[in-house]
Amino acid sequence: MVAAVHLVRTSRRFGATLALDAIELEIAEGEFFGLLGPSGSGKTTCLRLIAGFDHPTSGHVEIFGQRCEDLPPYRRPVSTVFQDYALFPHMTVLDNVAYGLMVRGIGKAERYTAAREALALVKLAGFDARRPSELSGGQRQRVALARSLVTRPKVLLLDEPLGALDLKLREEMQVELKALQKRLGITFVFVTHDQGEALSMSDRIAVFDHGRVMQVGSPEAIYERPEVPFVADFVGGSNLIDGAGLGHAGVEPGRYSLRPEKIVLGRPAGDGAGDGAADGAIRAEGRIKAILYQGGQHRVTVALPAIELTVLVPAAEARGLTVGETLPVSWRPEDMHRMTGAA
């Protein structure tokens, strides 16, 4: 099966800076694919190469099997939704959405019909005559989305489109975008630096760092089975543990990832109190160094003799914890994931 998007040994240099380092990436047709990474990791450069706004220094980009280096953006079967919306302030909502069709020479009646259908798709029917200044941030984002969809692209590129929205609206838009992609069945390529956003929306995720793809996989694989320390730390803030330093018979030497929610604080794992841990748990005592309130849970930093651990404690169990006190810390060896990469 031909991939919707295939980056083949693709690199991009800006002077002495290597923004993308010979990456290999395949995105399947109909997939909601997340490009995740910190600022400067190369994810937006990757998106720009697919869109045609930039060109690779080496390697090439294929869209549905066609090499695209020489194709301008308007001749590629893709459309882009930008973080800043890029709406024309002097145009009505209807004219903004219909603009791409006008550029392609589509007649007024036909393009307005298509634009109204696209607005209905994003739940903005009846907003035709408004100007962008009369809309909320979420409504402007929907207009930008409708403008991209009206040209019927095979691949929709989204460059951190929810970054300017408040948390509640961002979460609502995540649900709507995912539902819309499933309904349309087209390929979405979504750039974000927000781990929660990538995990909740993507079918698969590519995690970027310093121009390289560190890991590609399902949200569950990225979160539960990181291959390298960078992914373990960046996605969910995992604890990184040297197995040799634990001195536990059931743990081989190597680098391990241990998620904060897998650790039991305040009672030994396997004590029958309902945590489900089996005999053979790893146990130690640790001193609480910091407690951060996060609503339904507390993020607790615990200092052990040879390591500091981050523990997520449900708010109901965190009452009474104080900085400086010493408590049992424990976890099951099977909750530690051994990483195979060193990067």
Rank of each mutant, 00 (worst) to 15 (best):
I291S: 04
R319G: 08
G320E: 05
V302D: 02
G320D: 02
A284F: 07
P314C: 08
A315N: 02
A278V: 12
P305D: 12
A277M: 12
R283P: 00
V302S: 06
A318G: 11
G324T: 10
V300N: 02
E308N: 11
G276Y: 05
Q297D: 04
A306M: 02
Q297S: 12
A281E: 09
V323L: 02
A281R: 03
V302Q: 03
T322P: 00
D279W: 05
P314Q: 06
A277D: 10
V323S: 02
V313W: 04
R287E: 15
I288V: 15
H298I: 03
G296P: 01
I291H: 01
R299N: 04
Q297A: 13
L321W: 01
R299T: 06
V313G: 04
I282T: 12
A281D: 09
Q297C: 04
L312K: 10
I282G: 11
G295I: 12
P314M: 07
Q294M: 13
A316T: 09
A277N: 11
H298Q: 14
T322N: 03
D279G: 10
G296V: 11
L309G: 07
L312D: 08
T322V: 13
P305V: 14
V311W: 00
V300D: 02
L304I: 10
R299S: 09
A290G: 03
V313T: 08
A278Y: 01
A284K: 02
V302C: 08
V300W: 01
L292N: 05
A315K: 11
V313L: 09
K289Q: 15
E308S: 13
A277F: 09
T301R: 14
A306L: 10
Y293C: 07
G296H: 10
G324P: 03
L292F: 05
T322D: 03
A306H: 11
V300H: 02
I282D: 10
V300Y: 03
K289N: 06
G295Y: 09
R287C: 12
L292R: 15
V323M: 02
T301H: 07
A277K: 13
R319F: 03
V311T: 01
V323Y: 00
L312Q: 07
V311H: 01
A316Q: 06
